[in-house]
Design a binder for these strands. Structure first.
Lengths: 122, 122
DNA sequence: CTAATTGTTATAGTTAACTATAACACAAAA
DNA sequence: TTTTGTGTTATAGTTAACTATAACAATTAG
């Protein structure tokens, strides 16, 4: 489910961790009420210090994704419940982009740009 | 064309700068042979120190996007030349996602996940 | 109640990113 | 050649991210 952070990517570890957890919630692998592994375990999984885990979890709590229960654990607080149609749209989009041999990084930047500028929609 | 970096986003400034420049190349605002503004000017535009500009530019040079000419300037080395069809695909994708009220952050994470897993393509 | 499991806080030190400032080096124009 | 505009390098200091380690606090199981 989770994988080690890349410590040489330039992106702070706690942000990578936040994104991994968010992603699991978005795709529905983590649902409302589910518990996360204990922080000491997460620390081993992501290969970072407990404090770094805590920083990520606290931010996700602040953003409303998680809830902390002292002595018990961290729990998912939101359900994404994306429609299947959304998944299908994303899949077919990815497929098209791969056929054009465009890499993920490029797509993300292009997407950001188009997202910001509305002039493309008819 | 360029805008200030967000110093509180957690993402290192030099990476934000790299992404902004890459984005201009991707969407075709910067073409092969074009020069960038002088580093001291970029420093003012992005509101960071010259050294931070240099770090971003050197990485982009290493990645093949730019070329430095001592005493002259930085020049774009690559042409993206994305097809119009690609832009159209992205636009219509963005439109659909906006209609579903999904935010950009979520889309990017979802996209990453789908990109990594091939099981969706027929 | 006690022990085990979990989250929380604190301290001290390291490293990478960033800043300010200045000097140096190359190229082009006057 | 001199000046101006450009990239380049260096030094020193600040801050944020991260680490290691330890202790403390709340919950649950026995």
């Amino acid at each position: 489910m989770f994988y080690e952070v890349d410590k040489h990517s330039g992106i702070p570890s706690y942000i990578q961790i936040m994104n991994q957890i968010k992603k699991e919630i978005i795709i529905g692998n983590l649902k409302k009420g589910d518990s996360l592994p204990p922080v000491r375990e997460l620390s081993k999984i992501f290969n970072v210090n407990v404090n770094t885990i805590l920083r990520a979890l606290e931010r996700l709590e602040f953003e409303g994704y998680l809830e902390a229960q002292h002595g018990v654990g961290y729990f998912v607080r939101t359900d994404m419940d994306l429609k299947n149609s959304v998944f299908n749209e994303v899949s077919s989009f990815v497929e098209k982009m791969k056929k054009e041999n465009i890499d993920l990084e490029t797509i993300k930047l292009l997407l950001e740009e188009v997202w910001r500028n509305e002039q493309f929609s008819e």
